[in-house]
Amino acid sequence: MHLVPDGVMPPYPAAMTETRFHALPDDRIVAYRFTPGTGPALVFLPGYMSDMAGGKATAVFDAARARGRACLLLDYSGCGESPGLFEHGSLSLWKDEVLSLIAALELEQVVLVGSSMGGWLMLLVALAAPAKVTGLIGIAAAPDFTDWGVAQMDKALLADGETVWEDNPYGPEPTPTHPLFWADGQANLLLDAEIPIDCPVHLLHGQCDPDVPWELSLQLEQALRSGDVQVTLIKDGDHRLSRPEDIALLLGTVDAMLAALTGKA
């Protein structure tokens, strides 16, 4: 394992396609991949219990590398290749990990691409670093899902310190909601007030999404203060939006946003 102290990055080759590790001051370790390039750096934020090996993250990284653009992928602590326990994770901790990596890699401007829970996390990162975040792209963004996505009886169990387990349609193991994550999510709710983010935002959402209602992207569009918010609804799209045509739409959305930000078609 190659550990890199916080704020100290070794010289990297033309593209760091292999996994590296970044250490935070409290000894948390975050796995990441980075390819340098021009323009604002793309930072892909995976969803709940997802990682940087997913199809959308890999597609964004490979396209950025082919086009000579900077791109950062990461696994939150306790996820993917990052050590730690998932049950110790929270939005606030993972937000700090994203910000720490952005600072350590000296990325001056970033465009955050957030999938599902990553769409909530991208909003929290943008609120914490408005001078650095120049654009947001949400894929079935799920802000506040600890509130609207958790039954009232389960909230009572979580408030009592119990873990709630649900059927997982994407794998054999049930999906846990741990008390720490739920409580931190409830402390970071955003949709009940104006969200003071002013950068361009593009939200992609499938209208056959069984996990995150597509109407939530319309609600988020209304809550954002930015005057430049676009919502694209995919009539037959599911939650993951990982079909070839969905990936093509995502990459086209990335291209369009970067072109608008840099003035290059």
Rank of each mutant, 00 (worst) to 15 (best):
R65Q: 15
H88V: 02
N168A: 07
S115G: 10
H178Y: 08
A187F: 01
V212I: 14
P83I: 09
N168C: 09
P200E: 03
G135N: 03
D184T: 06
P244D: 07
L190V: 01
D144Y: 00
L249N: 09
L258C: 03
V8D: 13
L105C: 04
D209F: 00
C79N: 15
Q109F: 04
V133L: 02
L136E: 00
H22P: 10
L3T: 15
E18S: 14
H202W: 13
L157T: 02
G54Y: 01
P213R: 12
A70P: 02
P244Y: 02
A259C: 02
D27V: 11
R240E: 12
D246Q: 08
L218P: 12
I195S: 05
G55V: 14
H202G: 02
R20T: 07
L72G: 09
G135H: 05
I234Y: 00
A15N: 09
G227H: 06
L241E: 07
T19K: 08
V164W: 00
T38A: 13
D198C: 05
Q152A: 15
P179Q: 06
G185W: 01
E162R: 11
H239M: 08
V150Q: 02
T19C: 11
C199S: 01
G47L: 07
L258R: 15
L91T: 08
D6E: 12
G7F: 11
P25M: 10
G54W: 03
E162Y: 01
G84I: 02
L251R: 06
P46V: 07
A183M: 08
G37K: 10
R20K: 12
M9S: 14
D51V: 13
V231S: 08
A131L: 04
V212K: 03
G263Y: 00
A53K: 14
L85K: 11
Q222D: 12
M49G: 03
H22E: 12
W120M: 01
A41Y: 03
D62V: 10
A183R: 09
G171N: 03
L241C: 07
L241H: 02
G84F: 00
R33C: 14
A104R: 08
G39I: 00
M1D: 03
A260S: 13
A223K: 10
L250C: 06
E215K: 13
A41N: 09
G138C: 05
V4D: 15
A256E: 08
P179F: 00
C199Q: 05
R69W: 10
D238I: 02
L216I: 09
I234H: 00
R243F: 00
V254N: 13
P172L: 11
Y170V: 05
T262A: 01
D27G: 11
P25R: 09
A129T: 06
